[in-house]
Structure formats: structure tokens, C-alpha cells
Design a protein around this nucleic acid. Sequence first.
DNA 1: CATGAATGAGGGTTCATTCAT
DNA 2: CATGAATGAACCCTCATTCAT
Lengths: 189, 189, 189, 189
Amino acid sequence: MGRKQAFTKSELLDQTKKLLIEHGYEGFHLKLLSGNLVGARSTIYQYYANKEEIVAACMKRAMENVLQKASAIGETDCMEALQQLLTVYLEEADFHQLLGDAHKINKANSSAAANDIEFVDQAHTTLKKQLERLFVLAQQEGHLNTSIPLPVVIGVFFNLIDTPNMMNIPTPQWSKLLFQMWLGGAGRR
Amino acid sequence: MGRKQAFTKSELLDQTKKLLIEHGYEGFHLKLLSGNLVGARSTIYQYYANKEEIVAACMKRAMENVLQKASAIGETDCMEALQQLLTVYLEEADFHQLLGDAHKINKANSSAAANDIEFVDQAHTTLKKQLERLFVLAQQEGHLNTSIPLPVVIGVFFNLIDTPNMMNIPTPQWSKLLFQMWLGGAGRR
Amino acid sequence: MGRKQAFTKSELLDQTKKLLIEHGYEGFHLKLLSGNLVGARSTIYQYYANKEEIVAACMKRAMENVLQKASAIGETDCMEALQQLLTVYLEEADFHQLLGDAHKINKANSSAAANDIEFVDQAHTTLKKQLERLFVLAQQEGHLNTSIPLPVVIGVFFNLIDTPNMMNIPTPQWSKLLFQMWLGGAGRR
Amino acid sequence: MGRKQAFTKSELLDQTKKLLIEHGYEGFHLKLLSGNLVGARSTIYQYYANKEEIVAACMKRAMENVLQKASAIGETDCMEALQQLLTVYLEEADFHQLLGDAHKINKANSSAAANDIEFVDQAHTTLKKQLERLFVLAQQEGHLNTSIPLPVVIGVFFNLIDTPNMMNIPTPQWSKLLFQMWLGGAGRR
DNA sequence: CATGAATGAGGGTTCATTCAT
DNA sequence: CATGAATGAACCCTCATTCAT
């Protein structure tokens, strides 16, 4: 019954993600959002009670994606797992920028937003633990250069995600290339 | 003699930089700025005609700093030069984030802002050329792993700047550590 | 046969009255109304063309109630009639507050609303005339203190209706008590 | 320094009071308010942080007026004191309607509003106590008809305030007239 | 020049009302 | 007919910018 929907919740979140990446959290406006959808600004409120909920839901969804893919990775071969993890992160590279703004969301306004952000935070630690687990393993198995502190190794690895892929190399190869550089370095062997 | 000067242009830009880094371009407000200075909000307009000009001037000044330091580096030993360049960039690491927002500035509002951004863009290419020059040299001298495309090597090198220094290692050592990792990799030699 | 009827006109007006008393005219929303009924907000428009018509219809119905009860009162014994009239008014005490908002209704929107309000106004004068008739009679029969202007006597009598019944005395006794106070005063005899 | 003010805080509260009485709490809009002042709507925010604070400040000011006048009344002659108190209340008759909406104010938005409302509540009980004190005294001194429960006597007395003064009798005489009616009743002595 | 005050544009949100199923 | 969804008008509030002292 009723009219058919102007846009789906999923489309809404897609555009939200795009605009958040493009303009940052503070530059994200509902007018902008509705301008990138087919309907009126007020129609957005059929889906979410306020701006905070939209952003939080967007972040949660992005996190769920990553979490699901990451948890599907087998961890028996730690170096292989790290490589796969990097691929996962690269596939959802934008999401990394997104989450940096998670704490800017005013949770007082909406419990739904607060819950979503709570989920994101939890998932964040889950992911971190997985990463640390794999790195410790890699170190124990002697894959890593022991003269570099582990946190630095991890930091650099994680930072690879944001390397701009200016040659538009397909993600799987891009992931391999970055992993190779990270492991072997840019210098002559 | 009239009222005593409220704040200097330099103080204004200092706070602008701080706040831009803290809140991002879209989260930067003149109310915030005047709140971090000693005078009234309206006094800002004695120095700059509008918000865009302030941000543009801030970016220009930051770029001038880097440009000056970078141009002072001798380029005879290319690897040494790269190491020094990385240090320079790390010293002004925040500024790197800043420049990402340069294109968000609405240049239609003010020609002064447009000019400053133009300067920033030019300087950007100057820096890139220096970097490329050094990298080509490094490749020619056989310092680099030839199996990795040069743009990727450069991209990864440049991206090192944003690696979070979570252990708060002093910049000179931090620079050496990152350089070492970039050159030699995280893996066992 | 189609869908089953969502709610009757009478239920709609019942809730409208309740909510008008609870929140006042300006605090009365259709969202609130539909929230207190079984059907959808849009279904309301099957019965009334707009908000104004609903409120006007509600007022008219309340007025009809009072009018009917009031006109059934015999006026041979004027003091007895006044007592009965007070009881009638007290039984519909809330309605008295309601009518104060009658003039706030924007009649330009709907002729139906305008007609209903017109009816209410007419009935209002009818009631007033009845009251005046009885008061004049009471005065002629020497029941009233002649040192007080009749309009004041009437005003105070009418205002009794809004006296808050904080002890929750049943309406018949409450009516007698107020009437007694009005007639005899609060002072020692 | 700076421009001269468009309107004073006091003018703002005057209009607020007028409009609150005219339209009720829910019908009070800042657009309405600015329309009744000389400046723009946004100028209002130079004085108060939000709508709630305005209404709360308005109520507080009205209460302060009454409180001050009421506390200046000598209580040795209780009947005289009651008469004077009635005069005070009549002089600020509108204020009585105002306060009924005090609890509608959303205090979560502003602590300033919360404080003002707290003040109003406290003052309310102060006034009630004064009234009760006087009534108990009046009863003890045998001025009151003992067949009527005191709460009812008080309720009716308090309700006198809202009696519409349709003949526009000056307040002092109006007060005397009402007091006389309340004490002696409308009936023949 | 420095400022406090004024203001309009713009964004968030609600709500009466309309529309298509 | 009953409904869920769509929508524009209207309101609250913030902020860049202008103005008069």
C-alpha cells in the first residue's frame, strides 16, 4: 500500500558514504544528500530520525562489510592472512577515512546513533585484535625485521591503505604490490 | 593613538592552522577562530576579506615554509636528499592533511584566495618535480628495486608522511625509522 | 468488501477533545491525533478536509451537548434553574476552556469550519441570553444583592466553572458547593 | 562601542509575555516575536540562547514582580492582607495563565531555562504558603463560613483572578468588588 | 582601527496535506 | 476506502558578514 518509495535505505546510505568522503563530516548536509537522491529533503526523515543517525548507520554498514570479510579470512598462514586482510581493507579503503569522524557524532541526540557508534567501536577493537594477533604470529615465526618496533610495523602497514592508487591498478594486484613493498622495501635487494 | 592592536596576522594564521588541523576545513568557523584569539570576530575582517582568504593564506604560508626548507636541500646524494626531504615533510606533517582541502575553497568569492591557492598548486608541482628528480636519480644509481613501478614507489614514500607516530618518537629518529622501513621493508633481511 | 473502517467520526472527535484539553489548540497535532486512534494519519482526511474543520466540528459537538442539556432546564424557579445550569456547565467544564480557543481557528481555510464556528458563536449567545434571563429574574425576585452590578454577578458565576476541583468532589455536590459559595459567600453568616 | 541595540531585553520580554498570553506556549514563535520587535529574528539570539530561555526568563520576571509585591504585604490583619493580595494578583492577572505552561518548557535544552523554572516553582510554593497562612488565620479568627472546606474557599478565591473584567472597572475597585462578592456572596444579605 | 550589535542566508527538523497503490 | 510514502512550508538555530559607534 501507499506510494512506492522514492529511494531505498541502501541508496540513501550509498550517497551518504560518497558525500561524507567527499565533504567530510562537517561538510555533509541533508540538502546535499537529498540533492543526490530523487526525493525531497524531508523524505529522508522517513528513514532516519536525524542527521546523526544517518551518518552512524552509514558507518555501521561500512564496518559490517569489513568485519564480515575480515572474519572470513583463515589465520593459519599469518603472512597470507595479512595479505588478504590488506586486500579487504583496500576494497573498502574509503571506509577508513569515514571512521575517523565517528567520534564527532553527537550521540546525545539519538540513541540509535549511539548504538551504531558503539557497534563500530567494538568492531574496531575486534579488527585491531585480529591484526595484532597476526603480527605477533608473524614476528614469532621470524617473518619480520626485529630491528623495527612492532607498533611502527603495524602503523606503516595500516597506513598503506591510504596510498593513492594513481595508476588505477586493479585492487588484487594493487594489494600484492603494496604488500610486497611493505615486506621487501623499495630498495634493491 | 587608537586602540591597541588586537592580534597580528601571524597569530591569526597560527590559530587558523591549528583549528584547520583539529576540525578540518568544513569544521573551521570564524567564531572558533576569534574564540582562540584576543579580539573580536569582526576584527578578523581588518586583515582578510572573508573566510576563504584566511584559509588560503594559511595554506600558502605553510607551503612557503616547506618550499623553503625543501629547496635548501642539496641534491648531490639523492638517497641522503630523500631522507632529508622526508624529515622536512614530517616536520610539517599536519600541513599535508591541510592541502587535501585546498580544492574545497570557493575561489569565486575572492581573487586573493584564488591567487594563494594558485601559488600552492604551483609549489606543489615544484615539490613533486624535486621528488621525481631524486627518484629518477635513485633508480639510475641502482638504489631501487626495479620490479616496482616508480610511481608506486613514490606514492608509498609520500604516504609515509601520514603514518601516525603513536609512540611519539622524535621527528629526526621517526624520519630515519620510516625511511629505513620504506627502503628495506618490514620483512627479515 | 474493502478494508475495515479504521475509526469512526465520533471516536475521532472524542480523541480530538481529549487532546485539545490536554495540549491546547496550538499544541494539537494531527500526528498526535492519529497516534491516539487505530488508523493512519491520512485516513483522517476521509472525514475532514483539514485540521481546522476537525477542531471546529469538535467544538460544535461539545456545544450541541451543552445546548441540549441547558435548553431542557425548566426556568420557572430561577434559582433552581441557575443551580441546574451550573451543574450542566460543570459536567462539560473542559469544554469551557476549549471555546476560548475558538477564535484562533483560521476560518479562511474552510467554509465548513467557518460554519461550525458560526454555530458555536450563535449557541454561545443563546446560552448567554438564557443566563441573563435567569439573572434578571433572580434580581427581580429579590434573590440578589443589589449593591453588585449584574454583569459582575454573572461574570463571577460563569467563572466558577473553571474552579479546580482539587478534592475531586463528585460533580452534583461540587455544583451545590460552588453555588452555595457564590450565593452566600465565603464569610461567616 | 558597536551599534546601538535594536531593542532591550525588557522590551523583548514584554512582547514575549504579550504573545504567550495571546497565543499560548505552543503558539509562541520567534518569528512572531521578532515581528513584534524592531529587529531581525536572529537578533533575538544576542539576548537568549534559545526559545526556552526566553519563555523561562519571561516567566521568572513575571513571578519576581508578583513575589515582590506580595512579600511587601503586612499580614497582621489577615482579611486586609487577603484583599491586598487579590489586588496584587489582579494587577498581574495574565501572569496566572502564563505559569500554567511553565512545565511545558523543555529544560533539557538549556540550563538557564531550567534554573529560571526552578525559581518559578520555588516562588510558587512561597506564594501558596502565604495564602494558606492567611486563610488559616482567617478561619481561626472566625471570618469564614465553617461549613465550606478550606481548600474550596481557597480555590474559589484564587479563581477570582481570572474573572473577566468586562466593564473595565479600575483594578483597585475591581479587586474590592470581587473580594466583597467572594466574602459576602451574590445573594441578598 | 577595534568593536559589539544586526542581519540574511542556509541547514535541521516537524507537520499538515497530497498522492498513488 | 485505507494507507504508507512524499513533500513544501514553516520553524529553530548558527554563522559569515556588514554596520555604526
